[in-house]
Amino acid sequence: MRALVLLWSLGPLFLQLFSSLVTPETLVDPGKIAGGGHWTLANYRALLGASPSFGRYLLNSAVVGSGTTALTLLLAVPCAYGLQRQRGAMRWSVMAALLGAALFPTVLLFLALLGLARRFDLGNDLLALSLPYAGLSLPLAVLLLRTAIADLPPELEEAAQLEGLDFGERVRHVLLPLLSPALASTAILVFLFSWNEYPIALTWISRADRLTLPTAISRIAGSSVYAVPYGAFAAATVLGSLPLLLLVLLFQRSIVSGLTQGAIKG
């Protein structure tokens, strides 16, 4: 059963890896593998040697991702804290609104957000792209962090209060250290969202050297439906996945716990 699940989950990923590493002749007739090596790194060389290089897109996505994550946490932590301190009715209505926003399919906002980019001339600016991304990540981030704050025993802050720590000191010495696991898992989820976001990047970014990874991939795919360079495709998907694979493998615990903790109470 487990083997079957793994095959189902990972099979397509391995297919990509395989396709990216063989010559086009072998790709269409894998039987040739048996007859002798047809392995090649040509696909990767072509991608990385192209102008702009594929590495550029990875870098762009990393820039947007970091900007988004930083901005989201900066706004979400105070908001979650303030929210948790609200009276019951107020808190529940804000949380319901946040839940609604978290459920909302963000693709439906692309047109109006494009208008925003036009009006303030934010197109093709990677850091400016962090602004809508942070806005779209906020509902989930605030809900997750509020749950984490609600789970902290109130006596800890009270004890610090009695010891004479003012608000800023309590945040620095007590609140933030205790929240760090929740902060880590929230940060990863926000980064994942930003790394994977497609429709808004598609409409905000048009310059080739500013494309984020998903838009770059779709541009390669869009070149032609029929005579598609599948080897290059596969190499692109592998390169585009690797950073995420690393991230997920490194932070598996945070991701799983972040999602599972926040899921319901949020």
Binding site: P153, E155, L156, E158, A159, A160, Q161, L162, E163, G164, L165, D166, H173, V174, P177, L178, S180
Partner: peptide, 20 residues
């Protein structure tokens, strides 16, 4: 304010900072 009263309290849960 609590911080200025110079009182000490032992909480039922002890309220020790778990990260320290």
């Amino acid at each position: 304010p609590a911080g200025q009263r110079q009182v000490a309290m032992v909480f039922q849960s002890y309220a020790l900072y778990p990260h320290l």
